[in-house]
Simulated scan of single mutants.
Amino acid sequence: MTRRKNELQGAELDVIEKTLTSEILPFDKAMTIFIKDAKRKALREFTIKYYLRECNDFRNYLAREEHSLIINEVLRRHIDEFIEDMQQRRHLQTVTINTKLRAIRTLFNFLYDRKFISENPMQKYPLLKDRKANISTFSNKQLRQLFNAPNMRTFTGQRDYTFMLLLLDTGIRLNEAAGILVEDVKLSEGSLFIRNTKNHFHRYVPITAKTKAQLSRYLKLRGTCETDHLFVTIDETALTRAGLQKVIPKYGKLAGIKGVRCSAHTIRHTFAKLAIMNGAGIFEVQKILGHSSMEMVRVYVNLFSSEVAEKHKGFSPLNNFDF
């Protein structure tokens, strides 16, 4: 009789791994552990709220459909059914569904990596394929209408004009603008320090003479406040991200701008378009916009590069025909 080896190997280890590392974990407790870890990593408050919102949306779906709320019992088919529900009952757009899937994937990847679950239903789960929609931007006429809308004889008008000018000059994100402190404005250096970034990599962005002059005027009007934030309310409190988010829609409506979404992100797209059309290189655009990869920058180049249009004039097959 052959004596078996006492040390477990291969598939035998897989058998006990599931038993030793997994526990019965309710969805809510899993979320508490996940969010606690996110806070420990000092993720942005906006990011944490995003995880809470989207993961709890999935949790509420499971409860409504009377599926188990034990995180270990969530299966891949539950994800499939959740997607079908979002598409057929809620009629959500593909980009919205993918936003939710990214949050759920992050949750389950965390739980699997920390061995709270032995099976990961989101492992290699593909996002929905979405046709790249045309990126909307402001025309030069619409920009003039937008920037002429604030009442420059009021503090809020000067503040909002400064905010919009800063967005157009630098292409920074809304959340980045909300995090700017007075000390981040480097007028003598002609730059702006961006601390509240999406990828946690702080960066400096250049500002033009026109923006420097407007920032100088605004800082004199702003004066000294208890908050260090650059953009403040008339009560001298920090203007929140939600408050800044309302600025461009407000003036877009006042200016009667139609056919384009009036938002900070549209100004960001407009910055990218104008920068590329004016000859900015892809690495310059990537650095200023703070993209961690070249994917979005390539989209901008493909859409807005005037060089593509000029080259097309030379190689178009129609050049060889006289209709």
Rank of each mutant, 00 (worst) to 15 (best):
F271A: 05
C262H: 13
S305V: 13
K273L: 04
V260Q: 12
G279T: 02
S306L: 13
I288R: 03
V297M: 06
H291G: 04
I288F: 00
H265S: 05
A280H: 06
T266Q: 06
G290F: 02
L303S: 13
K246S: 13
F283C: 05
H269M: 14
K246T: 03
A255P: 09
K273P: 01
L303A: 13
H291T: 02
A275V: 04
S305Q: 12
A275Y: 05
A264M: 10
L244F: 02
M277I: 14
V260E: 12
E295A: 15
C262M: 03
V285C: 14
L244I: 09
M296K: 10
K258G: 05
M296Q: 06
M277C: 07
H269F: 11
L254H: 01
I248T: 07
G279Q: 00
K253E: 15
C262G: 13
A255E: 06
C262V: 01
M294R: 02
F304W: 07
K273S: 10
I257W: 00
N302A: 12
G259W: 01
H291M: 02
E284M: 11
M277W: 00
G256P: 15
P249H: 08
I257K: 12
S305K: 12
N302P: 03
G256C: 12
A255D: 11
K250D: 00
A264C: 08
K253N: 15
L244E: 11
L274P: 01
N278P: 04
Q245R: 10
T266N: 07
S293I: 04
A272I: 09
H265Y: 12
V260H: 10
F271M: 08
E284K: 07
E284G: 14
Q286N: 03
K250G: 01
L303W: 00
K250A: 07
I282V: 14
H291F: 01
A280T: 03
A255G: 09
A264V: 03
I267W: 01
A272W: 08
L254Y: 02
H291K: 03
R268N: 10
V297W: 03
V285T: 13
N302C: 10
M294S: 05
L244K: 10
T270M: 09
T266L: 02
E284N: 12
A275F: 04
L303R: 06
F283P: 01
I257E: 06
R298A: 05
E284Y: 09
L303I: 07
